[in-house]
């Protein structure tokens, strides 16, 4: 695979020079039209045009450079990425918002000022049933929800990736045992299992992320197994093996780098689902536990004031929706940019 490092400044300059030389040589050596070509000039021209081809070949941008170019040209995905970055900035500056903008801490109760509508008495987005400031909780809750989703996605791909790689590469009994486990997990609908585990074990935010990963890795493992199986049979893997490469070397140098684009695409595409799972569980009251805010438990809490204070339902839900939509659009853009089957 062509490496992206070829685009570093010195390398690019060298390449530029080499190409100019080659181009100059090719033009000067081209025989004049009509004149019978001399043998030596032909041979030399060919040698130089060979250099030109090599230079232009090396200039081919790497997979990720090209993917970023395709992604950048995709207006929808870029917009979604910008929105997602803004949301991340919003939740990361939760502390600043609390200190400088709202002046409330996320779990501060003001029972005398409960259920304040938005834009009144200093509550920019209103207050909830305990008189807690919604905007502050939205920032802190978003931090919790996004952290859980990201952590869950990373763990999910670590587990699914390792299992899929092991099953696909080692084959035989390992494959048989691991795939039976995958079959079992895929036959239990995820949500009931998640509710069961979170209700009984009441994990904290980090535990919840791990539970989401432990329940959800099976599909990914199956995907990676298939991909590993197909990569294992490729000629370059055979070539590496014939040159005496060890199994770990083949996996690390030849299989994993080729799985990486798939990994990136499916990690980003799994993010919205994982966030919806967490917020769904928290909505039901079996995910993130109050007073720790999450967009899901804010929505669940707001549900009881549904008739009088609809903003308590509308606002956290809207944040979940905008975030999941942006994550999904970014993931789609990444898939279009990274999937070699789609590039023509």
């Amino acid at each position: 695979m062509v490496q992206t490092t070829s685009s570093t400044s010195t390398g690019a300059l060298d390449l530029e020079r080499e190409m100019d030389d080659a181009r100059a040589a090719a033009t000067t050596l081209r025989p004049a039209p009509g004149a019978p070509p001399t043998l030596s000039s032909y041979a030399e021209a060919e040698a130089y045009s060979g250099a030109l081809d090599r230079a232009s070949l090396r200039r081919t941008p790497g997979l990720y450079t090209r993917a970023w170019r395709i992604f950048r040209a995709n207006k929808v995905s870029m917009t979604a990425l910008v929105i997602l970055v803004l949301i991340v900035v919003f939740v990361l500056s939760a502390g600043l918002i609390s200190t400088y903008v709202t002046g409330f801490t996320p779990s501060e109760n003001h029972l005398s000022a409960k259920l304040t509508p938005p834009m009144t008495d200093g509550y920019i987005l209103g207050s909830d049933g305990n008189g807690r400031d919604v905007l502050t909780r939205l920032a802190y809750g978003g931090r919790v929800s996004l952290t859980i989703a990201s952590l869950a996605a990373l763990s999910l791909f670590f587990i699914g990736g390792v299992v899929g790689l092991a099953a696909g590469y080692l084959g035989g009994k390992t494959d048989a045992v691991l795939m039976r486990l995958v079959d079992v997990l895929l036959s239990v609908p995820g949500l009931p299992l998640l509710i069961l585990v979170t209700t009984l074990y009441q994990p904290g935010p980090v535990g919840l992320a791990l539970v989401l990963a432990l329940v959800g890795w099976a599909g990914i493992a199956r995907l990676f197994r298939g991909e590993t199986l197909s990569l294992r049979g490729r000629e370059y893997v055979e070539a590496a093996r014939s040159m005496g490469a060890s199994n770990p070397r083949i996996v690390v140098r030849h299989i994993v780098p080729n799985l990486l684009p798939l990994l990136i695409v499916y990690t980003s595409l799994s993010l919205p689902g994982l966030m919806l799972a967490e917020t769904g569980l928290s909505f039901l009251g079996v995910g993130v536990q109050v007073p720790t805010p999450s967009w899901g438990n804010m929505l669940g809490d707001g549900q009881q004031f549904f008739r009088t204070n609809f903003s308590l339902v509308l606002i956290p839900g809207l944040m979940i929706y905008i975030t999941s939509l942006s994550m999904y659009l970014v993931g789609n853009g990444l898939r279009d940019a990274l999937d070699p089957k789609l590039t023509r």
Binding site: P272, L276, T279, G280, F283, L299, Q303, F306, V313, G317, I320, Y321, S324, L325, M327, Y328
Partner: peptide, 9 residues
Amino acid sequence: AIPDFWLAL
């Protein structure tokens, strides 16, 4: 991408 529980509400 819509969260179904929110949509329901």
